[in-house]
Structures are given as C-alpha cells and as structure tokens.
Design a protein around this nucleic acid. Structure first.
Lengths: 338, 338
DNA sequence: TTGAAAGCGGTACCAC
DNA sequence: GTGGTACCGCTTTCAA
C-alpha cells in the first residue's frame, strides 16, 4: 500500500506551508487565485485524496450522516434513502447506512458505532422491538426520525398519519360493500401497525360495521408466514371479503393465499396494500394501495437534518405527509349479479 | 453538544496515563486484569465512546468496509449485503454502503469518498455504465468484486457463471417445447446480460433452434419500460412462446404484458426469471427462476476481503457459485391437447 | 505492568 | 495573503 499523498507533500513541493495548502484546497477566500490554482493542479497531478479522519478529528465535522433503518430491502426505506441521498449528496454529505434487522440490540450497537464515527447527524427509523428510547435520548447530535417515529415530540419527526391513512383505506373497502376486513398487521407491537388498526376501527365504527378482533392478523416479516396465517384465517372465517395489508409485498402473499383458498380477487375478496410499490400495478389483479411519498419524506428528513446541523431553530417538530388511495383492480366493487 | 469523554478523562480520574487506558480498553495482554476492570468500569460509567477518527488516523485501520453497489433496492444486492454484514459484523467491522445508481460518475465519486474515509477494504459491484476500471486500478486497498465483476483476473471476484446459468434456463425452456424465446436483457451494454445472452445462444445452437436477434430486448430499469417493450415485441413477433427475464422484478412486468396481450402463462408463453426472489413463489402463476446464492456470495466476499486485510495470500482469484433452476408454474410444459 | 512522548494528517488560531 | 504551530484523540514505539 503505497504511501498516501498529504498536504505536507504538496506544501513542500510548492514551497508553501501545510496551512496554506489546506486553505487553498478548501477554497478559502484568503488565498490568492494563483496559489489556489497551483495547489489544485499539483493535488490533481499527485492524485491527492484528503483524509477525512484527520480533518474530522480536528474540525469536529466530517460531512458524514448516519442512516439507521430496520431493513434496506423494505421499499419505504430504499426509496426514502434515495431521497435523503439526493439532498445530502448535493451538500457534500455522505451517508452511512445501518440496518437493525428489527432488533433492538442491533439498533443500540449501530448507534454506538455511528457515535464512534462521529457522524454529523442521524436519520433513524425505529426497529419493531424498540419500545423505549434511552439510547437516543442523550445522543448529543442532530437527529431526525422518519416513518417509524417515536411519540416523544422533542424529536423532529417525518411521517404520515398512519391512523388516517388506514382509515381512508378501510373506508374505501367498506364503501365498496365489504364488511369483513382482515388486517394483516405484521409483527406484534409494531407502532405504525397499531395506529393503522385504530384507523381501521374508526372506519368501522363510522360505518356502523362490527369489528371482529380475530381479523387482526399478526405474523413475522418472513416469506410464507403471512400466507399461512391468512389461509388459516380464511378457513376459520369464511365470511372474509377484504384484506388490508401493511405493505404491498405482504399483499402479494395475500393474493396467493386467497387464490389457493379457492376465492377470487376482487369478486370474493378485495385486497388493499400499503406503500404503492413499483411492482403493484403489474400484479394480477393490479394491486390497490395506500400511497405515501417515501422519496419526498426522505428529502424532507435530509432538509430538516441540514437545518439542525446548521443550528437553525426548527419551527415544527412533526412533518406529517399526505397519503392517498391508489385504486386498482384488486378493490373493484363487485357488481350486483343479475 | 456536551464535551465527549476521552481516554484522558479516564486516565486522570484513575491516576493513569492515556496509554494505559488505551491498552486496557483494547484488552492488551500487557495490562493487569485489575487495571482493565477499573478502566472498563469507569468507561461504562462515563459512557465513554471511542473516537474512530482518532484511532483510525493513528493506527491506519478503522474497521470500516465500503460496499459499492448499483442499487440497494435490487434483490441481489440487499441480500448479498446481509451476508457481507453477517461475516464482517462478527469481526467488529462496520460497512458503509454506497449506491452508484448505475452511473459511472457516481461510482467514481463514491470511490473517492471511501478512499477519503480510509476504509480498510472495499466490496464492489460495477455499474451498468462501467466499461473501464481506471478508478479501481490504483486504489491501494483490499478489494473484492461481487456479481458485476470485471474481466481482469488480478482482482478477486465472487460471481456465478452467467453464461452457464442462462444456458440452463433457456435449455429448460427449449426442452419444454418452447421455440421462440424472448430475452429481457436490461440496459444496453450490461456485461452480465451479454454473458447470459451467450448462454442463450449456446442453448439454442445445441438444440438446433434458430435465433431471432430481435428477441433480445433492451430496456431501462424503470417501471413500465420492460412492460412496454415486451408488449410491443409480442405484437411484432406473435410466435413468442417464452420469455426469459434478467430478474424476477422485471418478470412481473412480463407477466402483465403477456396477460394484457391476451395470452396466458404458461399455456401460450412460459416465463423464467432470475434470482429467485422471495416474492416469486407467490406470484400468479408462480414464477420459475434461476437461483443464485446471493447471501452466501456476500458471505464469501466478506471472508475473502478479511483474508486480504489480514495479508493472507489468496489462492484463487475467482469464486464461481453454482446456480440452479427453480421450477414453478410459469414454465410448466404444455400438455398436448386432446 | 505502566509511563513518556512522538506522531497520524489535517485545521485553526495568531502572527506578520 | 501566507507562515508558524498547537492541537484534535488515540496508538505505538521506547523506557523504566
């Protein structure tokens, strides 16, 4: 591993001091254009690469941002990350993506690592296991939550109104004549799922439709588990005429379970997903979904974080994004026969 | 931002020197157990978090590994990353994930950043635009390529035999009686796709089936484009009786295009995907796919990189993983009618 | 087993 | 506009 070029090498070659070279490379106003030119030219020629460790150590800013999410394979996360990186990248910030895999201990461990790297800020989405926030409390760094946000309103939070979003989705199903709606909730204790269930309940109450608590179905985010849980429930509750799923990926398994139960979508059972993922229009039947602007939410999270880093005092602590229903084939109302 | 605790604080409090504290925290054999205990206890109590900037600057090792992939939303990548992180995490290494979004300039930029962070090593998968490797040539750090690997055999490469994998997939289609197989190739110039096309051709030649070059279909990895390209091709070439897709995500669009063209799968047209993604068993019809062990490949990439970092001389430069066909409904052979 | 001190490669303050 | 230099927090010789 050949010795790296440093600003000392450049300084020596040009008969300058490291301080001057540093200022030149950082385009400081105090340095003459001619010196800057010479320094930049030689830096390029020697293929000089700055050492972020060193500059970060001294300046306490390394232009790195931590992103902590449950799983990059989730559509919301990869999409939000794209939005985050678009904003942050334009300002010269780099991101360090960490996955908790829904585990609290991974979350704590990743957090420690991000602290030890001394990232300039953090954008986080809570794991399914996270119930208390001790590990976030005294982080002492700019922090923005996204999607899976805590209740604590001292934090800046970017999210949707999960209750309202589910309310709209379930209302749509009820209005198309469905009465027995299964809620594919995901793992036990997931906050966003509980909020959505509240919207589910409210829509039922307003429509004066009775709620069967057994239609709230929990499962692990593990291929096959949602399928089997739903198949079993359909067997036990043959009156089910709609399924509302926590995300589109899971809704695909729901479509399969319904098909294998000998029922058809949307004639017998309507299906509504969540997130409006890019594959959903191409499924059969095409999947209706509650859409949330994940990319834009990522952008906003990044903008808020930049504000925090620059020390601006932020007006609002909570940014609630709008959701809307995307109607497709899987929730077409059933025509009255005859 | 409260002042961070340093080893100086711990040293002062315990009437030791920073050197001793450093050694104690790193579990050095030269430090007595009793001192280690005291240091660790106080470190925990003060919530000491080591500064990787500083230790990395001095020791030239920061236990960080760069991962450079086209897109984390691709199934292969998120899955391989999980494998990489499993191996590296156990050794105390952290990963910094960068996305090129298939752009050469993003690749070069990300590479510079990873160099400036002085990561201990790099695992990379080439962007679709990457034709030459100048930016990788003089990186001067342990480097392993995965999936989208260069031809250059001076690099360690983790990959499958793309030609052979496609050969097997196409052979399977030909043997089930298909004769006009469209190849959904992805963007122009993608190396793995070209290799797979060679396998496609070889399978045709061995089966003495003629090849129609117009059945090689290029498109962008952008929702809708594969669908429209395939619909158009089906219209122009009504004899198409099979579709082989570069990945399962794209195959979903193919299923939609075929359906909307009034044909059915697998009766009129068989569909074979690639990667055997987790949703594929639940599609309708369930999707046959060429499976590659992405998680294991990620693990192997990490193991090889660790070997390089530890200075072991690696025997083999190329690790070729086995693929196999997963047969599902979308390629069922058509029963002879009557 | 522990201490003393010299860096690692930049940045920032104070001179000039 | 540029130079000199202390210093960021830790690691690593060399001594004791």
């Amino acid at each position: 591993m050949a010795q790296k070029v440093t600003i000392y090498d450049i300084a020596k070659a040009l008969d300058l001091t490291p301080a001057t070279v540093s200022r030149a490379l950082n385009d400081s106003y105090e340095i003459s254009e001619s010196t800057k030119e010479k320094v930049r030219a030689l830096a390029r020629q020697l293929n000089y690469q700055p050492n972020r460790m060193a500059s970060g150590l001294r300046s306490k800013r390394n232009k790195m941002i931590g992103i902590l999410v449950p799983n990059i394979a989730y559509h919301f996360n990869s999409s939000a990350i794209a939005g985050i990186e678009e904003v942050l990248g334009a300002q010269g910030y780099r991101t360090i993506i960490c996955q908790t895999h829904e585990k609290l201990d991974r979350e704590i461990e990743n957090l420690k690592d991000l602290v030890s790297i001394r990232v300039d800020g953090l954008i986080a989405s809570l794991s399914a296991e996270t119930l208390q926030l001790d590990h976030f409390q005294d982080l002492q760094m700019p922090l923005v939550f996204i999607d899976r946000v805590p209740i604590d309103d001292r934090f800046i939070r970017i999210h949707i109104d999960n209750e309202d979003a589910a309310y709209k989705g379930v209302q749509h199903l009820l209005q198309s004549g469905r009465k027995h709606i299964a809620w594919l909730a995901g793992p036990e204790g997931l906050d966003i799922a509980e909020r959505r269930y509240r919207g589910y309940c409210r829509a039922h109450q307003e429509a004066e439709t009775s709620i069967d608590p057994q239609l709230k179905i929990h499962f692990h985010f593990k291929p096959g588990d949602p399928y089997h849980r739903l198949r079993q429930t359909i067997q036990e509750k043959p009156a089910i005429d709609a399924v509302f799923s926590i995300n589109d990926r899971i809704a695909i398994e729901a479509l399969a379970a319904i098909r294998d139960a000998g029922k058809s979508v949307p004639q017998d059972i309507a299906v509504m997903g969540f997130n409006n993922e890019s594959i959903s229009p191409w499924l059969y039947p095409s999947l209706s979904s509650v859409s949330q602007p994940s990319f834009e939410m990522g952008r906003e999270a990044a903008l808020q974080l930049l504000g925090l880093i620059k020390g601006q005092k932020m007006q609002s602590r909570s940014f609630v994004f709008e959701t809307h229903i995307v109607e497709r084939g899987s929730t077409l109302p059933v025509l009255v026969k005859g």
